[in-house]
Simulated scan of single mutants.
Amino acid sequence: MDLNADLGESFGHWRLGDDEALLTIVTSANVACGFHAGDPDTMLRTCRLAAEHGVTVGAHVGYRDLAGFGRRFVDVAPATLTAEVLYQLGGLDACAKAAGTRIGYVKPHGALYNALVRHETQADAVVDAVRAYDPTLTVLGLPGAVWLKRADVAGLPVRFEAFADRAYTAAGGLVPRERPGAVLHDPAQIARRSVQLATEGTVTSIDGRTIRARVDSICVHGDNPNAVIIASSVRDALTAAGVKLKAFSLENRRLTA
């Protein structure tokens, strides 16, 4: 099982999360590409830390929305969205190469992630960007998302993730953040859910139903104040349950000499 976290979300003098600690715990890092969060200094620093710890780097692409942290839907033109995703991929990959590694996968962030579950036009735009940049890049997202279906048809490698610290609806979607109980905070509860996801392939919805969840990677959010404690609890619980932790990308895509 892969364990991923959203990292590199600091900006200028503003610091968010403990990337250094999380990169000793997770196996994959969703690194912000400067649109919803992050800046060149942060991107390069995070890639260097990821390479140092053998953590796979993923491009956490999002809407151009620093003020809203990428959590507001943007009705951007498809051609523009394709260009903006390409821009983000190129920027992060340059930092990754300079750090001695490469980006291994692409995961949309926030409102873009949620939009791509059903928004066919934007889904096609993001798929077009990944195909144009590097068709060998794995794409990571929510099972059933339309963009993953389009990506699969386009020949992109597809992997599915679940969120250890987010509540699910009975239909298998994420409960909107503005609703009570949408974000979980208890490390023990989150760890138990992670073991359930990894060993049973199920998750309990917010209304108590058991739903199927196809999972290649489990995400913990790096912007949670208790992110390090939560990630450590999840890793320890998975290991104790006999789950081997390994990045879903088969290799770290390090540059050869």
Rank of each mutant, 00 (worst) to 15 (best):
L3Y: 07
L3M: 02
N4A: 11
A5H: 13
A5R: 07
D6Q: 05
L7W: 00
G8H: 03
F11S: 10
R15W: 00
L22H: 07
T24D: 13
I25N: 05
I25F: 03
V26I: 15
T27D: 02
N30V: 06
A32W: 05
G34N: 06
F35W: 12
F35E: 03
A37F: 02
G38W: 01
P40S: 11
T42D: 01
V55C: 03
G58Y: 04
A59F: 03
A59H: 13
H60G: 09
V61G: 00
V61C: 08
G62W: 05
Y63H: 12
R64H: 12
D65E: 08
A67V: 14
F69S: 11
R71C: 09
R71L: 11
R72S: 10
F73Y: 09
F73H: 14
V74H: 13
D75I: 13
P78C: 04
L81S: 06
A83N: 12
E84Q: 15
V85F: 03
Q88K: 14
Q88V: 07
Q88H: 11
L89W: 12
G90K: 08
G90D: 03
G91T: 10
L92F: 02
L92V: 08
A94Q: 04
C95L: 01
C95Q: 02
K97H: 15
K97E: 15
A98E: 14
A99L: 06
G100Y: 05
G104R: 08
G104E: 13
G104C: 07
G104K: 04
K107T: 08
P108Q: 02
H109M: 06
N114V: 02
A115W: 01
A115H: 02
L116Q: 07
H119S: 04
E120V: 08
V130I: 11
V130T: 02
A132Y: 06
Y133H: 14
Y133E: 06
D134R: 14
L137W: 05
V139G: 00
L140R: 08
L142F: 07
G144I: 11
V146D: 03
V146P: 06
W147N: 03
A154V: 05
P157G: 05
V158S: 03
F163I: 11
F163M: 07
A164T: 04
A164Q: 00
A167R: 00
A167N: 00
Y168W: 11
A170I: 00
V175D: 11
R177I: 15
G181E: 04
A182P: 10
A182E: 10
V183H: 04
D186P: 14
P187E: 00
A188D: 13
A191Q: 04
S194P: 01
T199C: 12
T199P: 01
E200R: 15
S205Q: 03
I206G: 04
I206F: 13
I206S: 14
G208D: 05
R209E: 14
T210E: 12
R212K: 13
R212Y: 00
R212C: 01
A213E: 10
V215C: 15
D216P: 01
G222P: 12
G222R: 12
N224F: 05
N224H: 15
P225T: 05
V228N: 04
I230T: 13
A231H: 11
A231E: 01
V234C: 07
A237V: 12
L238H: 06
L238K: 05
L238G: 04
A240S: 09
F248R: 09
E251M: 06
N252I: 15
L255Q: 11
L255C: 01
A257Q: 08
A257Y: 13
